[in-house]
Every structure is written in C-alpha cells, then in structure tokens.
Design a protein around this nucleic acid. Structure first.
Length: 399
RNA sequence: GGUGAGAUACUCAAGUGGCCAACGAGGGCAGACUGUAAAUCUGCUGAUUUUUAUCUUCGAAGGUUCGAAUCCUUCUCUCACCA
C-alpha cells in the first residue's frame, strides 16, 4: 500500500529531495492516520491556466489521495518582488481587488483537479506583512550573499555584470519563510524552482520548526509540438478553459510519443493501467488511436463534463472520420455578391486575401464540401459553409 | 574609453549596384498517404482583385545613382578583443 502510494507520488517527477521523509509521512498516514501538509505556491497574476500548470496540480491531487492536506499558496506579497527566475522585470503591483479576482479565478479552475475538502488557500501577505522590519531583518541574517549567488541565474547575472536588485534576494527567503510559517511537510514546484524550494528546508532548520520539508520537482510539460514547453506565447497550449471540442481535438492531434508523456503527467490512471495500455499498443492488440481517444476523453471530462466530453468525441468522429460539417460554427452575414477571397478574410478564416487566394489555388478551400478552384468566384445570395483545411469552418449568409 | 566585427522575413542564415519580395535550412500552413499520429512525397509561406503587375520590406534617418539589402554620412543597438 505504501509502496503503491510512493510510486504514484514519484511518478513523472524530475527530482525528489529527501524521499525518505515522504516515505515516513506515508507510513504515519497509513499506520496512524496522521495527515501531513503539501505546499505549492502560485502567482496571483495570470490565472489563465493551461495543462502545463496542471501537472503540478495533479501531483497535489495525488498527494491528497494519500493523506495530504494541500496548502495552496497565492504569493500576493512575493509577486511584488517578481521572482528573479528567468526574465527579470520589476512587476507592477497588483491591486487587492485584482488579486481577489485572480484568486477566485484560480479556485474556479483549480478545484476541477483538487479536492476542496483537503485544500486550504492562503495568501502570503498575511504573515509577511506581520513580519515587520525586525522580522525581515532577522530573516536576512539566516543566509549569506555567497550562498545566494550560488543560485544559477544569480551567478550568471553576477558574472556578466547584469544588475541584481537586493529585493530579488528576498524572494527565495520569503518563499522559504512561507514554509516556516505554514510548517509544510512537503513543497512541490517546477524544476526551475529548486533553489527556492531548498530555501524552505534551510529556513525551517534555521527557525527550528522541528522538521525539514521534502521537496518534489516536476518537469516542464511539452506543448502540442512535443518539443518546446507548453506556453501561451508559443501557441502550443491546451487551456483549461478551452471549449470541449477544441480540447478534445488538440489532444488527439498530439503525437503517439507525446501521448505517453501526457499520460504520465496528466492522467489519473494508475501506473499499472498505463503500462497495460502501453503493452497493448506494443503488441499490436490495441490501436494507439484508441488509447489517445481515452486520454482526450479523460482530460476533456475533467474540465467540462462527461456528457460534453462524449459530445466532443462524437462531433470529432462526425467531422473528421466521416468528413461532415461541424454542428456548430461561427456565422457571418454579408451583402452580396462577394468575392470569395474577401469573404474568407472577413469570416476570420484567412489572415489576408493573398493567403486566401493561395489556399484556393492549392485546393484547400471548400464550399459546401466541394473543392473550390476558381479564386475569382463571386458568391451570390444564399447560405454556404466555407472551409479551409481540415479545421477551419464558418457558416456564411450572403444577402 | 579604444579597436574590430556585425544588425536581412517567425528563427537561423546567404546575398556586397539592376536577373531581389530577397538562395538555403528549420518552423508554420496546405495537398497526397493516414489515425487531425509518426515517417515520406509535393506546393505555399510580405501585402494588394493592376497578380508575367503594383506597393511596402533587409537596425534608423539622410545622401549618391536612371536604379540601393548592397556605395557614402550620421545615429542606435549587439558581439569580440584591448584598457
């Protein structure tokens, strides 16, 4: 039992520090029913989550399954500093109203994965503000500059003479202090958070909390292309808020290799179930597409509902396997007669008339399922379904 | 502060007076084949109903020239070496 829990917890992780401690916590849970706490920090900005973010949430949910209470920390104080990780721009201070709104938006999205009964949402401004100047000073005495500079990006910036603000030194300290205040047993984060996560251990020792948190780091999830990390700016993401049809379709379009990765990091299936699927595919008794469909349904269901997921699957089947037109699509009305290329642009199917004409010449534009070859076509009054490629549709009314 | 090299489309990268909307590669889009997978093959990839044309684009602004990504001047930025 403990072994199984441990395996699920270790699943997909990039690195674990002090896994003996995690084992101890699990043992205590199974033998005495003692709960423990797992902390994870989130930025109060950008509550626009995609599946990459949910990898962490998922791990939290796994912990909940095995006896953990989750401390869902919203870093409203630390956000004012701006984590020096990566791009270092001083952040705008968020208004309390905005933070509250973002926090709410987090809750809406996050509880699709986390168990609200076992989750406490906390804001770190609460105890950091209470720390006061004296407390802050005390905090800074626990660490020294030389060790702070060991942090990768500090070191790089220091060596290449890029400025490091003193306030940035406070970021890891404060994040670590959060663990002191919350007396966390485990903290999880991305691999890029290693230094900050370890700071929690250091400070818990310095403040004599009586324990040192175990640290668990999750890898960065690859985006739809399977190579680069999932991110909004790269456009290779699946948003938590995506429509069921989009979500389903996007998952089905990932490669077979990437599918296993998504299974590992995103699915609620157990490792045993997953290796059974994998074996089935390798032996040829199971079609990889079936396996991918199951994943698409599972994920779509999680963020929407079972009915919506089934509907998305049925719709997908209709549109792509039987090449029928989708049941729902954008509708536009125009005064006719209209030149087809212009229409494609106005219906948001094409970025420019030049592109539209190229697409027509290549035979990727269809009107009412019929391939169009004449790029000079003028559409007379009537209703049409326009299509570019396999994915872009629009219903057009010309009057 | 000094010297040298450089800045070209989404990215890398060729091009050193007209044949340049600009080689090539990657990426992206589309077509064939498929399972909206992978691999492979093919086409496209600044804009515009003047489409064997026109307009805008090669860090910025001026200039030379019939003609400039390419030559000249100034400026901005990046890198390398020296101090």
């Amino acid at each position: 039992m403990i072994q199984e829990a441990l395996q699920e917890i270790k699943r997909g992780t990039a690195e674990i520090i002090d896994d003996a401690r995690i084992e101890t916590l699990l043992k205590a849970y199974y033998e005495k029913g003692t709960n423990y706490t797992v902390k994870a920090g989130f930025d109060p900005t950008a509550p626009d989550l995609h599946l990459g973010h949910t990898v962490l949430l998922h791990k939290l949910a796994t912990f909940q399954k095995y006896g953990a209470n989750v401390q869902f920390l919203i870093g409203d104080f630390t956000a004012q500093i701006g984590d020096p990780t990566g791009k270092s721009e001083t952040r705008k201070k968020l208004l309390p109203a905005q933070i509250a709104q973002n926090a709410q938006s987090y809750k809406d999205q996050v509880f699709k994965i986390l168990d609200p009964q076992k989750t406490t949402v906390v804001f770190n401004s609460e105890w950091i503000n209470a720390l006061g100047a004296a407390g802050m000073l005390e905090l800074t005495t626990t660490f020294n500059v030389a060790r702070m500079l060991e942090r990768d990006d500090f070191e790089k910036r220091y060596k290449s003479n890029i400025s490091i603000s003193i306030s940035e030194f406070l970021y890891p300290l404060l994040q670590g202090y959060d663990s002191v205040h919350l007396k966390s047993d485990v903290e999880i984060g991305g691999t890029d958070q290693k230094f900050n996560l370890l700071m929690g251990r250091h400070l818990q020792r310095a403040y004599e909390v009586g324990k040192e948190q175990a640290v668990l780091m999750m890898p960065i999830l690859e985006g739809l292309d399977g190579v680069q990390k999932m991110s909004k700016s790269l456009g290779n993401y699946i948003a938590v808020a995506d429509e069921p049809n989009d979500m389903y379709g996007k998952i089905l379009s990932i490669s077979d290799t990437l599918m296993w990765r998504y299974y590992e990091l995103l699915s609620s299936k157990t490792l045993v179930e997953i290796s059974a699927l994998r074996a089935g595919v390798e032996e040829g008794t199971l079609h990889p597409k079936k396996v991918k469909e199951a994943l698409a349904i599972e994920i779509t269901e999680r963020f929407h509902s079972a009915e919506q997921a089934q509907a998305a699957a049925a719709e997908f089947q209709r549109v792509h396997a039987q090449s029928e037109i989708p049941t729902e699509m954008e509708e536009y009305s125009f005064e006719g007669p209209v030149w087809i290329a212009k229409l494609l642009v106005d219906a948001m199917l094409s970025p420019s008339t030049s592109q539209a004409r190229r697409d027509i010449k290549q035979g990727s534009v269809k009107i009412d399922q019929n391939k169009l070859s004449d790029d000079q076509l003028q559409l007379e009054a009537g209703e049409y379904v326009l299509q570019i490629g396999k994915r872009k549709f629009a219903r057009i009314k010309v009057s």
